[in-house]
């Protein structure tokens, strides 16, 4: 069925003989969205704030302390963090009352625990985007997809050096044509909905809070 459907659809589309005239795309307007580093940082923080995202700018030596204080503030006991995350050892040695775990087994083995008993996840980011205040997150075997979705608090570590002006700048500079990773995400703030009479509510189906540590010196 589907192969004859394919044939029918493609040949019907190719029946059109005349091709309407149209202008080739002119992408210059996308390049007007550029900011200097300091302006970009300011914009990133403001844009995240406008969608309930919390950005804290810290120097690398103070990062572990800042993350711990955020975890304590949230009352987190069980926290996901990749074993390779540089921050992990510093956190483990300094917070005996928090259980730091890797997402080290297939989701099927511990789905209910992941959804119900995990308080926070700490992940790295591929990049940050000043224009829209977005994180670019590429899930990996160590930092799987549900890490940034199931726990109520998502903590993201973003080096200042990975801040770009816009998604368009990132895509063109890194040449995102051709094959892509299994999953790539742009994340801007915690999950939200306004489906009940346009009342904005944070914490729809994903995290209820997002804190970004914008780190100088890594």
């Amino acid at each position: 069925m589907t192969s004859s459907a394919r044939q029918t659809i493609l040949s019907r589309l190719r029946e059109r003989t005349s091709q309407p005239a149209s202008q080739p795309p002119d992408f210059r307007v996308m390049n007007t969205r550029r900011w200097s580093l300091e302006d970009g940082i300011e914009r990133f923080i403001a844009q995240q704030a406008s969608v309930h995202g919390d950005v804290q700018r810290v120097h690398e030596p103070d990062l572990a302390t800042a993350v711990l204080s955020r975890l304590h503030q949230a009352g987190a006991h069980r926290v996901l963090i990749a074993p390779s995350q540089g921050l992990r050892d510093a956190l483990v040695t300094r917070a005996q009352n928090i259980d730091f775990q890797g997402y080290d087994q297939k989701v099927e083995a511990w789905q209910s625990e992941l959804f119900h008993q995990t308080d926070a996840a700490i992940t790295s980011c591929h990049a940050g985007l000043a224009d829209t205040g977005s994180l670019v997150v590429i899930p990996s075997p160590e930092e799987p997809r549900l890490m940034t979705l199931a726990p109520p608090l998502h903590i993201a570590i973003l080096p200042v050096s990975r801040l770009f002006s816009s998604w368009y700048q990132l895509i063109t500079e890194e040449d995102w044509t051709g094959p892509m990773p299994t999953n790539t995400l742009l994340i801007s703030g915690p999950s939200k909905t306004a489906d009940i009479e346009q009342t904005l509510v944070y914490g729809a189906h994903g995290p209820k809070a997002l804190t970004v540590f914008l780190v100088d010196g890594i």
Binding site: K106, T184, I187
Partner: peptide, 19 residues
């Protein structure tokens, strides 16, 4: 200016992936 999530899916779960 953007939605909370832009989700780009390019393949099913790979052997070393966990979800």
């Amino acid at each position: 200016s953007i939605t909370t999530y832009v989700n780009m899916i390019s393949r099913p779960r790979q052997p070393d992936e966990k979800d």
